[in-house]
């Protein structure tokens, strides 16, 4: 396992080869392939494709979650309503703020941490410790920080008091709720992301830096002209995954940001992220299930566009190291 990292980044380039290669023996066709693909094909059809089609159909209907059988078709009404729905635009804006803060801080911190580690230590304990938050369930993390941020009994409030500041109810404040939620997520994923970057750094040939220092380049110059460009493929990959994940943030908000009935928070809808708004429409509001499906369709289209854009960036940069 210690030699696990044998295949090097950029193996995608070699990956294209076998497809075009001669190997005539592999002209097996579906007769053979179907046996290998059958389970996953069933999984794909049953749990992704058919439900997606069903959900898209629902987005053109007025339907109550309580009684999905009694649906009436409403054409494009759900979509036109969404365009005029102030709550939708609010939730889109809130989500965007969350994504920007989350991805921004997390990427910078993780990158710094990865560079720090690659310079200082390969200690397993260090790496395992910073990975710890990642293995904890979101719900658990949400509850943990709900307590930590509690303005009366939470430790953050005590620290504020110690330094003579008034405690802030972070998760109930219209100003702070999104940054606080984003920070919770940063806490959970920075170590994980740093390890991904760390792995990427390991693949950068050491001699590039040696050559750099011989040429008298400063640390910062080398970071900008060697580390960043060579790390870009992994940077892009991590960004795609983080972005898709961040736009769909739900668990932490449900556990710590409130909003889903009764829990503290969701101050004036300032933590009503898109997923939460979809959830509310689907489950809490009357006859809005089709509306929720339309919201989800829009989110899906948006995510597709983002992914395609990002993948294009990723592909363009792939040959940097090869």
């Amino acid at each position: 396992m210690t030699t696990a990292a044998a295949p090097v980044a950029g193996s995608d380039a070699s990956a294209e080869k076998p497809k075009r290669g001669k190997s005539s023996v592999d002209n097996d066709g579906w007769k053979v392939a179907i046996w290998f693909l059958l389970p996953s094909l069933i999984g794909f059809l049953v749990f992704y494709l058919i439900p997606t089609i069903r959900a898209i159909r629902l987005s053109f209907q007025k339907v109550s979650i309580l009684n999905p059988a009694a649906a009436t078709s409403v054409g494009w009404e759900n979509y036109t309503d969404i365009m005029e729905d102030a709550d939708f635009w609010n939730s889109a804006w809130v989500t965007l703020q969350y994504v920007v803060i989350n991805i921004g801080i997390q990427t910078v911190l993780a990158l710094g941490l990865a560079v720090l580690m690659s310079r200082l230590t390969e200690s397993l304990i260090v790496r395992a410790t910073i990975l710890l938050p990642w293995i904890l369930p979101n719900i658990l993390v949400g509850l943990l920080f709900l307590f930590i941020f509690d303005p009366t009994v939470g430790i953050v409030a005590q620290v504020f008091k110690f330094f003579g500041f008034d405690p802030i109810a972070f998760l109930a404040s219209t100003t702070w709720v999104i940054p606080a939620l984003a920070l919770i997520n940063v806490w959970k994923f920075t170590g994980y992301t740093a390890l991904l970057f760390f792995a990427g750094l390991q693949t950068i040939p050491k001699m590039l830096y040696e050559a750099g220092s011989i040429d008298g380049a400063t640390e910062w110059q080398m970071f900008r002209s060697i580390t960043i460009p060579l790390l870009r493929p992994i940077l892009a990959l991590v960004m795609v995954v983080s972005l898709i994940g961040s736009f769909q943030v739900f668990d932490v908000v449900a556990a710590a940001g409130g909003g889903v009935q009764g829990s503290p928070g969701d101050p004036l809808g300032k933590s009503r992220v898109l997923y939460l708004y979809i959830y509310e429409n689907a489950f809490l509001f009357q006859n809005k299930f089709g509306y929720a499906a339309a919201l989800a369709t829009i989110l899906m289209i948006f995510l597709t566009v983002i992914t395609l854009l990002q993948l294009r960036l990723l592909r363009a940069d792939q040959s940097d190291l090869a």
Partner: peptide, 18 residues
């Protein structure tokens, strides 16, 4: 205020004698 009430929860505040 709203932040204190929603953030801490009325029962906690009352229970703490505040």
């Amino acid at each position: 205020d709203s932040e204190t009430l929603a953030g801490t929860g009325s029962d906690t505040i009352f229970d703490a004698g505040q």
